[in-house]
Nucleic acid binder design. Structure first.
Lengths: 247, 247
DNA sequence: CGCCTAGTTGAAGTTACTCAATATCCGTGG
DNA sequence: CCACGGATATTGAGTAACTTCAACTAGGCG
């Protein structure tokens, strides 16, 4: 099995004084701090509860049904959240990129398989430690809640996409969303990396691989995107893509 | 416009000593308390921040794009969360029944129109008051977070349904889910009330009204459900319905 | 009692899926 | 370094399924 090439930078470049926890954990904590406006005390508490974890492409972080013992924040790479039904139908609930939380759920067990799409690094927090921290630092928990609510909004957007958009519109929506996330993570350009194979996009958008391929071709034919490589999309006409959805 | 008949009981029957806040607020607070194992102090704080709101069928609680000033818990009736795109495509993100929270979102504005499907009563909390309460009572905020995570799980289930199920399977899934929610609210029987018209079910499941109608007929023909009235479904064979989805 | 809205049922038309063949990309081994 | 092999992606033709369009039925309110 070969995986799409994908290397994402740390969210915030590690400063020289990264400290004993190493650059990646540091930048993750910095990221959390930036997002949450945490106090030094809170950051210290987070750092104490965290540990770093690395995954090879294809590695499995968790399996559907396993007990949820940790929550994670992604610092590098990419993950997919996959659900497979008894008869083999596959659904990719989402992709986790640097800065995203993974493992948030109301259930005591994981609701998805969580698999690395590329070389991935995460910060791991014990679920109960996180809960204790949340109780001790309400501000932190408030940010977690906000994060969950944003995820909720995203999921509902995705529902709209699945329920009411044509394949081409879904593809455009997906690309714009991915571009926005990569922009937030520091990738400015029109080139968007696709860390996942076509099959994952298909299972994410409720389509077949063939339809995904045809949709990409259609967008290229219309001059909205370019496809310099299998796993790279250049967004030539963001406004045109956006217009697809609304129209 | 006429609305499906729907009357849901208060979650917990109001005791005689309902107090100055009235029976419905009382039972809502009791509900929150039961779900959250709140302390008397926390309950008192909640009651102080809350006020009751009633809606006629068809009344609009909020419009997409409006500033979110409140969060609500439903004590009676039913609501729908609707999103309409620029070109008129409609999506019902979900239905809120007694015991559900409404208004949770990561965005500063409402992401959906929120409309009453029946005579509805809610408890209203100021959004910032709620935030203050959450900071002051971490336990309460933890419950809110859990609630949001459960919503997130639900939304992802819905994604699976939209992406990978046939119309008949979606219909079965929807009915089972609705039955489970009504069971939790105290309705035990095989009879499930549909507080919404067919068009709302269609826009919720990503189908057309016609397909919804045909799916219901198909389920009835297979002996899985009965349709004693337009807005009532009897689930004759829950196992058979469940088997549809997995198969 | 009649109109109007909502729901059901039927026939035709699109659209995305399925099946099949070809092309391309990568990693491997000669 | 090039050639090969396997997997992934693209492209093409046919089919099934859902939607669309249309007619009909049922129920509620004036």
């Amino acid at each position: 099995m070969s995986w799409p090439p994908f290397d994402s930078p740390c969210l915030a470049p590690p400063p020289d004084d990264a400290g004993p926890l190493g650059p990646c954990l540091h930048c993750q904590v910095r990221h959390l701090a930036v997002c949450s406006a945490l106090s030094p005390e809170e950051i210290q508490a987070l750092e104490t509860a965290a540990s770093v974890q690395a995954l090879e492409p294809g590695a499995v972080l968790a399996r559907q049904g396993e007990t949820r013992r940790h929550v994670y924040t992604v610092t590098r790479g990419a993950l997919r959240l996959v659900r497979v039904s008894a008869d083999g139908r596959r659904q990719v609930a989402g992709f986790a990129l640097p800065g995203d939380f993974v493992g948030l759920s109301g259930a005591p067990t994981h609701q998805h398989d969580i698999e690395a799409l590329a070389a991935t690094e995460l910060c791991r927090f014990g679920a109960d430690a996180m809960q204790r921290l949340g109780t001790r630092y309400p501000h932190l928990q408030a940010k977690l809640l906000e994060r969950a609510c944003v995820e909720l909004d995203t999921a509902r957007e995705q529902m709209m996409s699945l329920a009411r958009m044509t394949p081409i519109e879904r593809m455009g929506d997906f690309l714009l969303r991915l571009a926005a996330r990569q922009a937030r993570a520091g990738n400015p350009g029109p080139a968007v990396a696709l860390p996942m194979p076509r099959a994952d996009i298909a299972d994410h958008l409720g389509l077949t691989v063939e339809t995904v391929s045809r949709s990409l071709t259609a967008l290229r034919t219309r001059g909205l995107i370019a496809l310099p490589g299998t796993y790279v999309v250049e967004i030539l006409d963001p406004a045109g893509l956006k217009a697809l959805e609304a129209a």
